[in-house]
């Protein structure tokens, strides 16, 4: 088997012509022809209101904009971090209606009427959330870039109300990667904040 020397154009054209299931869609028995991207639909801007850290925020959004980019680039809430932008690192973890999700995988235009909490909304004024205080005390971070995601994920975990021993904290926090390797300290911090240290 040999691999042809494809130009980027050939691949993109071929890609555009490919059917196949995504999400809950049927691809059909045959691939259908998608019009070339030379004539793209001009995306409608979506007007969306989300409740963000307790405040209603009206946004005008390109449908492609992720919640993560909406937070960082439009609202200048840069506490939520972009690590991989593909749901594989957890740095962008926020609470959506109280549940932890990867903001990079959520199209913000779908969130009308939903409630989002980010790291900026976790403390009570100057009073740090117990998780935040515990992360400082246990040195649960080094470079700090995964930290908001770790803390929001831990906040989501505590909301879930599971019994938590060290092993289960590790399992349930495994969606949050820390390349500095602060894991043992993060686990200690979460144990303390969950009242189990």
């Amino acid at each position: 088997m040999t691999i042809r020397n494809f130009t980027r154009r050939e691949f993109l054209r071929d890609t555009a012509a490919t059917g196949g299931a995504a999400a809950i869609a049927g691809s059909g028995g045959k691939a259908w022809a998608v019009p070339a991207a030379a004539d793209p639909p001009v995306p409608t801007q979506h007007r969306v209101t989300i409740r963000l850290n307790g405040t209603e925020r009206a946004l005008q959004l390109d449908p492609r904009t992720s919640l993560l980019d909406a937070l960082r680039e439009q609202l200048y809430l840069t506490g939520t971090k972009k690590g991989c932008d593909m749901g594989a690192c957890g740095a962008c973890t926020v609470l959506l209606d109280g549940k932890r999700v990867n903001a990079c995988l959520v199209l913000a235009a779908r969130l009308d009427g939903r409630e989002v909490k980010t790291i900026e909304g976790l403390a009570d004024g100057d009073q740090l959330h117990p998780l935040q205080a515990a992360f400082i005390e246990h040195d649960g971070f080094q470079c700090g870039y995964c930290t908001p995601g770790q803390i929001m994920s831990a906040a989501g975990l505590l909301n879930e109300g599971r019994p938590l021993d060290e092993h289960s904290i590790r399992e349930w926090m495994s969606g949050n990667i820390c390349r500095c390797g602060a894991y043992p300290n993060i686990v200690s911090a979460i144990r303390q904040a969950s009242g189990r240290a």
């Binding site: 995504a22 999400a23 809950i24 869609a25 259908w32 022809a33 998608v34 019009p35 492609r64 992720s66 932008d85 593909m86 749901g87 990867n102 990079c104 995988l105 959520v106 199209l107 779908r110």
Partner: peptide, 18 residues
């Protein structure tokens, strides 16, 4: 033609980005 459904989006959004 040219339509995808989007449910949770965890896979589709990756495919769109890529």
């Amino acid at each position: 033609p040219g339509t995808d459904y989007i449910a949770g989006g965890t896979d589709l959004v990756q495919l769109l980005k890529d």
